[in-house]
Simulated scan of single mutants.
Amino acid sequence: MKKTLLLLSTLALLSACDKAPQAPKPAPPSVQASLVPETLPTDKWVGKWIGVEGLHLTVSKDDSIGRGHYLLTMQYGLDADAAGTFKGQAGEDGILFNRPDGPQVLRAGNGAATGLKWLADKKDCLVVNTGEGYCRE
């Protein structure tokens, strides 16, 4: 009985030694990398957007600063001084930016969300506030 037990133990040890070493498992991607998409949803907003009565918005990436940063060139009011280029940054709700009338958030919406009857039937729009929106044709 002891011989059988010794023989089985020896065979188990030898079979374990015959196995080729396994390659180490690759490290799992970091949690942060898996949570941040390669392309931000706000990157799809780059381009020209049209408002009403001559209002317009152009969104461009600000690659000099880095990912998620934008330049917003806009005529946001009827007066000549209601225009400019503003630096924006992607946030949870859209693109956050500051202009002379205070901090703003540019959000995705539709024509109805702009509150402007001339844009009401549009599907692809960006809205700053009710009464200020820009849509793609």
Rank of each mutant, 00 (worst) to 15 (best):
T130E: 10
P26C: 08
P100V: 08
T130C: 00
G133S: 10
L11H: 01
F86Q: 09
L6T: 11
C125M: 02
G68V: 05
Q22K: 14
G51N: 05
G131D: 11
P24E: 13
P28C: 01
T114G: 03
Q22T: 14
C125N: 04
C135P: 04
G66V: 09
D18I: 10
D121T: 14
E53D: 15
I95M: 06
P21W: 02
G77Y: 01
V59M: 06
L6H: 09
K2D: 14
Y134V: 10
L106Y: 03
C17F: 12
R99M: 13
A80Y: 05
L116V: 09
A27Y: 03
D81A: 07
I50G: 01
A16V: 13
Q32A: 13
R136H: 10
F86D: 07
G115F: 05
W49V: 05
K2S: 14
R99E: 12
P100Y: 00
L11I: 14
C125R: 03
E137I: 01
C135K: 03
L14P: 00
R107D: 00
G84Q: 09
T42I: 05
T130G: 07
D101N: 15
K87I: 02
E137N: 13
L13K: 03
T4P: 00
T114N: 05
P21D: 12
V31W: 12
K117M: 11
S30W: 08
P26Q: 08
E38L: 14
N110V: 02
L116K: 08
A16N: 07
A83C: 08
L55H: 12
K61A: 15
K87V: 04
L78D: 10
A20G: 07
V59H: 04
Q75T: 13
Q89E: 15
V59L: 10
T58C: 01
T58A: 09
C125L: 03
G109Q: 06
M1F: 09
P21C: 09
D124V: 11
A12N: 03
